[in-house]
Structures are given as structure tokens and as C-alpha cells.
């Protein structure tokens, strides 16, 4: 990844930083992605995967569930780039179909965790007292559960569907959001401008939304990005274990579950869906790490891969 063409850009404009204040948000974000090689690579990967997930299925000549019993276990070739599976179905079409499911589950789960966790953390910490204590203990209990274990148990209770996967995966991330917000609220609550707002008679909720939330948006953004990554993995693990989405719904985990049965006959069945999965996770991790380091001055460095 050293041959990044954007090296020249970031190298040529080392003086960009001081002029930040005059830039618009869009410019800042674009600038960040152009400047940080990790973010750049991650973004390109992500765009490719998103394109594959949402446009790809329309470009391939085969339906993902169309069998062709005369062409079982065909190795990758020009007509089937990723080969075919036990029923002679085109693996490329199936990996693409799996991509859109993966993104739907991951995005849904991460946003759901954000939408539950953030308000919960904000409200309880702002109220404080017993409510806060009880919530904190509940959050501790949730954190004590290994994330994947919790997701497994929940998905079994709710039955296999996209919506229950959202809840099952989101549940274990809720405390993380609540904590980010809580830390920030407790920190900001004492600040002068909040006290000032109190003084001029602003309501509690107004203070929360107008003054506190804007300050916690960046760490939330990091958390959401990293949650996309973990949600993609957890969904794949669940479906790999046969507990997530069941056939005929196509998911990467399900494809890998099937592939495991035919590892010797058709290794390509394992290689391609796994690679797609790994690249997707990688794209989110690269972006998330880059944003985090960018926001955290202690670990911020001259840019480039770490």
C-alpha cells in the first residue's frame, strides 16, 4: 500500500492544517480522506464493496439461486469467475447477494445500537442519582457477556431474521455508546458554558442536544464505524454456526458454512466469500482507526499507515 497515488497530494500540501478553520465541513472530511492513507484505502475498499453489494447483482448474468445441476462444483473460469457450488449456482452472484445482506445487517445493527445507547447514556447520566446507578450496573452486566455469546443467545430467542440479528448484534454494543456519552456528559456538565446555559434558563433537554451532543459526535462516529466492522463479523459467525440467517437467504456466513462441507471438493467456495468478508471488515477498521487517531491528539502522527 506504499504506492498510494495520494502520497503526492498530502506531501505537497503540508501547510494545509493551519487553514482548517476556514474550510467547510465537506472540505475537512475530504481533506482527511485525501491526507490519511489508511482512510483513503479504507474508503476505496468500502466504495468498491458497496458498489458490489448494491449495483453488482444487476451486472452479473446469473441469478444467485438458479441451479445448474450439470455444472456442479465448476472451478473458477471465464464464465463463472468464482466457480459454482454444489447445485451449480454461480458463486460470484451469491457473494454479491450476500454482500447486500451483510451491509443491511451491519448498518442496521450499528445504527440501532447508536439510537438506543446514546440517548440512554445521555438521559440517565444527566438525571444522575439512582437511575444512573441502576443503569450502570445493567450495563456492567451486559458487558460481562462476551459479545458473540450474547448475540448467539439473543438470536436463538428471537428466531433467525434480519431484524432479530439487528437487535442481537446491537445489544452488546449499547453499553459502549452509553459510556461514551456518559463520560462526555459528566465532563461537560461542569463546564462554564453549560452552567451559563442553565443560568439563562435553557431546559435540560435543550442543553443536552444543543451543547453536549455536538461534542460527542466524533467519538460516536468512530464507534459506529468500528461497530460496522464487528457487526459484519458477528453476523457471519452466527450464520456460519447455522444460527443466523438460514437458507435460502444468502449470507457470507452461510456460504462459508456450506463451503466448510466441501472444502476438499471445492476450496473456492471458502476462499471467495471469506475474502469478501475480510475486505469489508478491513475497510471499516481502516476508516475507524484513522478517524480515531485523527481525533486523538496523543496518538496523532504524521499520517500514513500505523
Amino acid at each position: 500500500m506504499n504506492t498510494n497515488p495520494m502520497d503526492a497530494v498530502s506531501g505537497a500540501e503540508p501547510t494545509a492544517a493551519p487553514t482548517w478553520r476556514q474550510e467547510t465541513l465537506t472540505q475537512r472530511v475530504t481533506g482527511f480522506f485525501l491526507r490519511d492513507r489508511r482512510a483513503m484505502v479504507g474508503m476505496i475498499l468500502l466504495v468498491v464493496m458497496l458498489f458490489a453489494a448494491f449495483v453488482g447483482p444487476r451486472l452479473v448474468p446469473y441469478e444467485p439461486d438458479q441451479p445448474n445441476v450439470r455444472n456442479r462444483f465448476a472451478a473458477p473460469s471465464w464464465s463463472h469467475w468464482m466457480g459454482t457450488d454444489r447445485s451449480g449456482r454461480d458463486l460470484l452472484s451469491r457473494v454479491l447477494a450476500g454482500a447486500s445482506i451483510s451491509f443491511r445487517v451491519a448498518i442496521g445493527a450499528a445504527l440501532l445500537a447508536l439510537l438506543i445507547g446514546a440517548p440512554l447514556g445521555a438521559v440517565t447520566s444527566y438525571i444522575g442519582g439512582l437511575v444512573d446507578d441502576v443503569t450502570q450496573r445493567c450495563m456492567d452486566a451486559i458487558i460481562a457477556f462476551p459479545a458473540r455469546l450474547l448475540a448467539i443467545v439473543l438470536v436463538v430467542l428471537m428466531g433467525p431474521s434480519v431484524v432479530s440479528l439487528w437487535f442481537a448484534i446491537a445489544f452488546s454494543s449499547i453499553p459502549r455508546y452509553a459510556r461514551i456519552i456518559r463520560g462526555s456528559v459528566l465532563d461537560q456538565k461542569e463546564r462554564e458554558y453549560v452552567e451559563a446555559a442553565h443560568a439563562i434558563g435553557e431546559g435540560r433537554l435543550a442543553i443536552l442536544f444543543l451543547y453536549i451532543l455536538p461534542n460527542v459526535l466524533p467519538p460516536l462516529a468512530v464507534q459506529v464505524t468500528l461497530d460496522f466492522a464487528s457487526a459484519v463479523t458477528v453476523e457471519a459467525s452466527l450464520s456460519f454456526l447455522g444460527l443466523g440467517l438460514v437458507p435460502p437467504t444468502i449470507s457470507w456466513g452461510g456460504l462459508l458454512n456450506d463451503a466448510q462441507q466441501w472444502l476438499e471438493e471445492a476450496p473456492w467456495l471458502a476462499i471467495f466469500p471469506g475474502a469478501a468478508l475480510a475486505l469489508t471488515v478491513l475497510s471499516f477498521v481502516l476508516i475507524g482507526d484513522a478517524i480515531r487517531d485523527h481525533l486523538d491528539p496523543r496518538t496523532r502522527r504524521r499520517g500514513g499507515m500505523r
Binding site: D65, P67, R86, S87, G242, V246, P247, P248, D258
Partner: peptide, 27 residues
């Protein structure tokens, strides 16, 4: 049951779908 042929279930679900039947497999 889990041990039964998923491939068989998939074939049945797809063929029935062509007649307008919406069958959900539950292994």
C-alpha cells in the same frame, strides 16, 4: 431437521415460489 438436505429444501422452496407459494425453510 438440520441434518436433512438443505439443497433439497432450497429446490422445493424455489419451485413452489414459481407457482406463487411463499415457503420459508426452517431447518
Amino acid at each position: 431437521t438440520l441434518g436433512q438436505e438443505v439443497a433439497l429444501g432450497e429446490a422445493i422452496v424455489r419451485q413452489a415460489a414459481q407457482a406463487g407459494l411463499n415457503i420459508k425453510m426452517a431447518p
